[in-house]
Nucleic acid binder design. Structure first.
Lengths: 304, 304
DNA sequence: ACTTGACATGCAACGCGTTCCATCTCTAAA
DNA sequence: TTTAGAGATGGAACGCGTTGCATGTCAAGT
């Protein structure tokens, strides 16, 4: 593998001139540049990006901390981040944690070591206070509300969306509501928000029997599974899912689209806009199936 | 950020002794090691992994070349590779291509530049002949049959699985078969194998009308979509999908499991086992719904 | 008493691109 | 004619961990 010194030798110019010629920085005469390019071609020289990273202190790599790589929520976010990063000349490294704090610490250390130019947390088990300590080593963005902590944050206000969904259900006359959660409300932000929203709309008492636990192992369509069960049992209940995943269209149930693509894109952008600290993304309730009809009827009624 | 020389100075030992102490290589007395560890703690020293990579020529990063990050086939494979890589102390960088040859070339160059220790192709648009040129720069593994090319390969023998599936359908008395393909059979290995298998079982003439084209943009469950349509139309046809994705269970149709997790794991392992060139993974036909019943009846009949 | 080798430690080169600083030329302005 | 400054180029340090080689000590073996 030829290096820049080989090119310098062959072309008869100095290393610094070669570097300038290849980076279009500083002064290099047209003739010299030409000779250098010839040598580059002849030796099939390509810059060693590791050396560059050591020299400049920038790796053009960002890390995405992700609990599980096989959950659609995270996949959608990752896809969006990757696309945006690519656009900007950055590479994305996936950093799976299984929610193990030790792994998260390990990845944070990578930032410290200049292995990464930035870090995006899709979710985390470490407390915000611990993340804050690493801000000095590089930009960190969290894909959730970081409240008063001085940590860049992009998030959909899921709480509001949930309230909205429950209100709609109430208006449509639904009285018995079940909710599914992954971890309990003290560990899962999602669970907390869901239950809070329920209580805000339906009042503080929710029958514990109607809280269903699904496992983190489940890789797709919790709502889809519920929908299937209910259909098979001929039960009259309907389902509202999340993330507008394809199966929700196929199985024709309503869903809350949290605009994850926009969220991912924004997360990447925030890495390099330290002046913006918090960015909210608004989500959308997509009506389908029976719920859609019911809502349409309601609207028709209220109009007449 | 403290570096190894700072630690050497503070501890009163040489840089090489510090390096040896931290890497548990060579001889270092217990007392010296202790003093060095104290200095390390005091300075909050952590090794700069970029410098390490430059020095050793190993980055512990492998690249996964992937056309689209949002397709379940690739996601499953990626998840498996990532898990195995993590296990072995490697990091995975996702390299999305959209099937643009230029991007693939760019990623291959990363291998040349020692930015990556290895490269896994989940799919590609470049010809094998071009990939072969890069073998000297680092290990490359393709997740498809590379035939006579000297390129490491892990693949499920999809052709055989397809033949098996068609044979089963034929035995069960199905006469009118439709197939779906993404790109035409000259560009898509998958399409080619599917059509070949059909012809092998049902004879050379397949009604062109029954070849359905689906788009690459479709992110999930082509078979699921078909199943849905057929059900809605009350059509008697049944569907066989691929990859055993969760929706196939939910919607209760049969599927061919190509064992992608095993495939991904194997792909990673092959990077560092240059002696193994080709590795086949056998797939499995999972019967569900009506097809399962029909096959069961057939078996009962043949037994009696 | 002498050799051998395990044990311990340090020096300096290496990997490689970038960039500050010094030097030199030549032209246009004063 | 002198001079400032643009234009061009090279030298060398820098970023930082690793490792081959040289040097030195000390105890066990002969």
């Amino acid at each position: 593998m030829a290096n820049i010194r080989d090119v310098a030798k062959l072309s008869g110019h100095s290393v610094s001139t070669v570097s300038r010629a290849l980076n279009h920085s500083g002064y290099v005469s047209a003739a010299t540049r030409q000779e250098i390019l010839v040598a580059v071609k002849q030796l099939d020289y390509h810059r060693n990006d590791i050396a560059l990273a050591l020299s400049t202190g920038k790796t053009h790599q960002i890390g995405v901390i992700i609990p599980f790589v096989n959950r659609p929520y995270f996949q959608k976010l990752t896809a969006a981040i990757t696309a945006e990063a690519f656009e900007q000349g950055y590479q994305v490294t996936l950093l799976p944690t299984n929610y193990q704090p030790e792994r998260e610490r390990q990845y944070l250390a990578m930032l410290k070591h200049h292995l990464l130019d930035g870090l995006i947390f899709l979710s985390r088990s470490l407390p915000f206070s611990e993340l804050v300590d690493f801000r000095d080593y590089g930009p960190i963005v969290c894909c959730e509300d970081t409240f008063d902590y001085p940590l860049a944050s992009v998030f959909t206000n899921r709480g509001e969306s949930f309230v909205h969904a429950f209100q709609l259900l109430k208006q449509c006359g639904f009285r018995h509501i079940g909710v599914t959660v992954s971890r309990d409300e003290h560990h899962s932000q999602s669970a907390k928000l869901t239950l809070q929203a329920y209580k805000m709309v339906y009042g503080p008492q929710l029958d514990p029997v109607l809280i269903y636990r699904h496992t983190c192992r489940m890789t797709d369509g919790i709502a889809a599974g519920a929908q299937r069960e209910l259909q098979q049992q001929g039960h009259g209940a309907l389902v509202i899912g999340q993330e507008n995943i394809p199966v929700s269209f196929l199985m024709d149930y309503s869903t809350i689209d949290h605009r994850l693509t926009e969220m991912g894109t924004t997360a990447f952008k925030l890495l390099f806009q330290p002046e913006i600290m918090k960015q909210a993304i608004s989500s959308e309730l997509i009506l389908r199936g029976r719920l859609k009809k019911i809502v349409a009827q309601q609207q028709a009624k209220s109009r007449s």
